[in-house]
Design a protein around this nucleic acid. Sequence first.
DNA 1: ACAATTCCCGCAACCGTTCCCGGGATCCGC
DNA 2: GCGGATCCCGGGAACGGTTGCGGGAATTGT
Lengths: 336, 336
Amino acid sequence: MKYVTIKDIANALGISKSTVSRALSSDTRNVSERTIRRVVEMAQKMRYKKNEMAVNLRSRRAKTIGIVVPEAVTTFYLQFTTAVQRILQPQGYRIILAISDEDFLTERLNFESFDNYRVDGILISSCHHRANLEFYKEYVRRCTPMVFFDRTVADLECSSVRSDDYHSAFFLVEHLIYQGYRRILHLAGPDYIRNTSERLRAYRDVLKKHGIDYCPELVVSAGIDEVDGAEAMNRVLDAGIRCDAVFCFTELQALGAKKVLQERAIHIPSEMAIACMSGTKLATLVHPAITAVEQPVEQMAKEAVRLLLSKIENPTAPSETVVLPANMVIRSSTEK
Amino acid sequence: MKYVTIKDIANALGISKSTVSRALSSDTRNVSERTIRRVVEMAQKMRYKKNEMAVNLRSRRAKTIGIVVPEAVTTFYLQFTTAVQRILQPQGYRIILAISDEDFLTERLNFESFDNYRVDGILISSCHHRANLEFYKEYVRRCTPMVFFDRTVADLECSSVRSDDYHSAFFLVEHLIYQGYRRILHLAGPDYIRNTSERLRAYRDVLKKHGIDYCPELVVSAGIDEVDGAEAMNRVLDAGIRCDAVFCFTELQALGAKKVLQERAIHIPSEMAIACMSGTKLATLVHPAITAVEQPVEQMAKEAVRLLLSKIENPTAPSETVVLPANMVIRSSTEK
DNA sequence: ACAATTCCCGCAACCGTTCCCGGGATCCGC
DNA sequence: GCGGATCCCGGGAACGGTTGCGGGAATTGT
């Protein structure tokens, strides 16, 4: 458990620790080949491991990126994290992941912890787009390198990456209409997520475009997970509200709703279509597979990393907002 | 971007940095109440944030736990991580997560990186139970506090936590038999995962117990994910191999197999039952819901943390192997 | 009034590494 | 043989905290 230090190596070889340090970073013009060989061999023999903490303190760079995600139930954030890791690991960065568990106080704690730890930069998907606004602003003011992704925040002078929610929602709903569905139920998201209003706006705009009246009873607020989706679906059916398609805010909602439909022996898609935003592999795994809008995870990770690295290099660089197109994948749940 | 240090506070107040340090840790018997108040106020005003790296270096403790997981596709490891975080965060620990992506070289890199970083302890689920054996042994020999969980490793003098694979697999297969299924297909796991042989052994033992002949063609190796499961299922059906139930190594395999069955209009569970190990919420979300063995995640996290903390306190403490019972949840996919 | 104790605070070393600076040795050219 | 460049190496100050030790001032006891 006692770790060997460069001082130990220096003593063993009877040279100074500065030389050892230089030898280990193979600074060829300041230390002879022979010495390098001797040091490297001794380091190997003594099983020396560089203490990263000391390096970080000295260099004032942690070589670490923090990622704050709202939850770890959906695989989306993990795919994102994995993608970021694949890009940044070869560049010598460590990735720290913190899960806010949909609680904005935990999120704040996680964020502060990263900052105390002097990470080089932070990627964050906010779990509440208003509650922590002032908190974020403070960090933005202090030029902490940070980039929002997926669940971004309005009114903030900060780089962000998200997919084009409005248009993809628009196309998705319009697809339902083209398939002949008319009374489209919308399981909306909670109001603390910014995307909720975007998707609702798209929904209304599509109806207007196609001359369909907007019925308030066809829009129900339904949380984000499968329990929320199932409950909402049951409420609607029990209330006798007539509809022939469901447009869900999340994939989990859709799975919950789908299960309710199947248990009630309502056939998908002939009696009721189902489609959702935020689709992942899950939507393809079930039967029937669900038509969904999928976020371009890899692409988002790539852009987020690019923006973050640019902020790290120059904290006062102008912010950038990247909006990526999302893919709509049509599957059997909406093919009449 | 320039962070305030205790030295800055000391200068601003015209006192020494030792006093500031003591005041900030509210060392009441070595610094006066008045000074503490002045320091705390000034710290607040100057937006001082303690540099954790410096503290760690000095105290020689990173107050950090590293978790190495094989993949982040299944939610199991994230639930585990979330659970660990919930236990350890209140105790002032940070959690670092590294994803090996089922690659043992990446795993090695991740592990070494944690060690270089002098984390207090490491929780690891191995992605290959043989490839890195010598590597692990070296760390065990050096008394690095580490605990294996879920995918554990044999022949290693190290604490570990896993669920009782053999018995739960046994019960699961036996359940199929009690339901009247006789020709049970086993989609086995890859041989680099230790559990593969355990589950296969259980499968054979159940058959023997019930006097059913073991047919080699009913055991096919099938990777771990849904693509593997679907391919294997297709191969078996195309080869005309007769069976009336499928016992899957993983949940994803089961979902892949289930999809193939449904696409071929083979009814579940009347024509073919399906059951799997490593079940999560996913198994409940699909229709019909899949009978599965679920690992006691929270319990595993609790035990893993307990074992790890004990190793951290006393690195030479004797190792312990904890085997927890897993739950079998019977669902409609196996009810004839 | 004086010794003993208590109370605060500053000095300086330390954690393990990097890196600037300076100095001795060797080499080259003239 | 001498000035200057080049090559290696050691000393020591950082990075930002914590902590043992010691000392001066204030308080207490007799």
